[in-house]
Amino acid sequence: MSQLSWQKSSFSSSDGNTTCIEVSADGSGVLRLRESDNPHTVIAPSKPAMRALLSWAKEPAATAWR
């Protein structure tokens, strides 16, 4: 895997808590996700799986996990 440029959410905490999800995309459009405190574990969800994750995260019930 070539060098990827990782981005953190603008909602990431600035209080020293570095745990957040980072996202990157390669030239072919494949999205990759990793947790900032474990950057060596990277997943590449399918487009339907990513859509499902984002839909779930937008649901009010998901706030219990935040």
Rank of each mutant, 00 (worst) to 15 (best):
I43C: 03
A57H: 06
W56D: 08
W6C: 10
M50E: 02
Q7C: 04
E22A: 04
M50H: 03
L33K: 01
A25N: 08
I21N: 06
D15Y: 09
E35L: 14
S46T: 10
L54R: 10
H40I: 06
A52D: 07
W56F: 15
W6V: 09
C20Q: 07
G16S: 09
S14N: 12
P60R: 14
E35T: 08
K47L: 10
V23W: 02
L53S: 05
S36H: 03
C20F: 03
S2A: 09
K47H: 07
W56M: 11
V30I: 13
R51G: 04
P60M: 09
S10P: 01
A44W: 00
S46E: 01
S24H: 01
A61Y: 11
R32H: 07
K8D: 08
V42L: 02
F11H: 12
M1E: 10
T63Q: 15
E35P: 01
A64V: 15
N17L: 12
A25I: 00
W65A: 13
D15G: 10
S28T: 04
S10I: 03
R66F: 11
Q3V: 14
D37H: 13
I21T: 08
L4E: 01
P48K: 08
S14M: 12
L4A: 02
V30N: 02
A64L: 15
G16L: 10
L54C: 10
S36F: 06
C20V: 11
H40K: 05
R34N: 05
S5H: 14
T41G: 01
N38F: 09
V30D: 00
V30A: 02
K8P: 00
M1V: 15
E22T: 02
M50P: 00
L31G: 00
E59Y: 11
S5F: 05
A52R: 08
S46D: 01
D37V: 08
S9I: 09
P45T: 03
S2F: 09
D37S: 13
C20S: 13
L33C: 01
S36R: 03
L31K: 07
C20K: 06
W56P: 05
I21M: 12
S36D: 02
D37K: 15
M50W: 04
R32L: 03
S14A: 15
S14K: 11
Q3I: 12
C20H: 07
G27Q: 08
K47C: 05
K47D: 07
H40R: 06
S12V: 01
T63N: 13
A62P: 03
W65V: 12
W56K: 12
D37E: 12
R66I: 03
E59M: 14
S46L: 03
D26S: 00
T63G: 13
L54M: 12
A44D: 02
A64Y: 13
S5D: 11
A25T: 05
S28G: 09
A61V: 14
I21H: 09
S36W: 08
R51F: 07
F11D: 04
A61T: 11
C20N: 09
A25D: 00
P60A: 14
C20M: 06
M1C: 04
